[in-house]
Amino acid sequence: MNRRKFIRETALTAGALMASSVAGAVPAEYPLTILHTNDVHSHLDPFPMDGSRNQGLGGVATRSSLIKDIREEADQVLLLDAGDIFQGTPYFNLYKGEPEIRAMSKMGYDAATMGNHDFDAGIENFANQLQHASFPIVICNYDFTGTPMENNYRPYTIIQKGKQKVGILGVGIELDGLVPANLYGNTVYKNPVESANATVELLRQQQCDFIICLSHLGDKYEEDKVSDEILAKESYDIDLIIGGHTHRFFSQPRKYRNRKGGDVLVNQVGWGGLQLGRLDYIFSSNKRKNLSKAHTVIVTRKTNE
């Protein structure tokens, strides 16, 4: 912990202690910053300087320095990815995802889920590349029994960030018709809404304060196809869905009502590592009896300078 951070946190704790001892005082506030990417598609270098719209943008070296700067100023930071890490530049053709996973580990990703293109060099290759990962792959609606992924994933992970206990699960898209069957092997796709709700129940039982779902379902579709929008509306306790697959650049997170009437936010930051999303949450403390009450979240947006 650096000196600046130490002073701030000490002040915060002291403030919280005082607030709790003085009746009617302003309740203490607890920050949590979530950084995220999706559909980076092997874009390790910035986009080539070819006169196109994205020239010079992206690249892991720039993203890493941006993340480091944010970690310096923010207290509790999570870094997440919503899948399709692989495929899109010759790095992937030559090295099958090794530099992508190593770069994410170096940047300190906390968790990621799997996208359909992560199967592109076969499920065994993805499992093998995870030897370079210092973060877990979370996905709750793929049954990997009897596949090389069997011991290389978790339905969810729980990370303590400051005071808050954060549960992170993942959901993946239907593979049939999207990924050739020989690449995903014996992977069994299960209904993402049912799987997510069952997994979230486990996270609630373990007293998570905040639940994030990493999703490669896609934000929404014209046709009747499961999406982040449907998942958000049919969920009970998911607070935030970090989406992917549809390569949409959201100007700010979309807000939905879950089945309890609470707020669920959904966000997505395009593709290719062109953007990094940053959600600065403020939490308030509550006695446990308030737990089941659906809460609302006020959303604001800082415009880019």
């Binding site: 949590l32 808050q164 700010q252 604001t300």
Partner: peptide, 20 residues
């Protein structure tokens, strides 16, 4: 019953361009 929980009450969003 004495355990404190934490609930999100607000969120400020910023999308960063990963700029050269």
């Amino acid at each position: 019953s004495c355990t404190t929980t934490y609930q999100p009450k607000s969120m400020n969003y910023q999308g960063y361009s990963v700029s050269p």
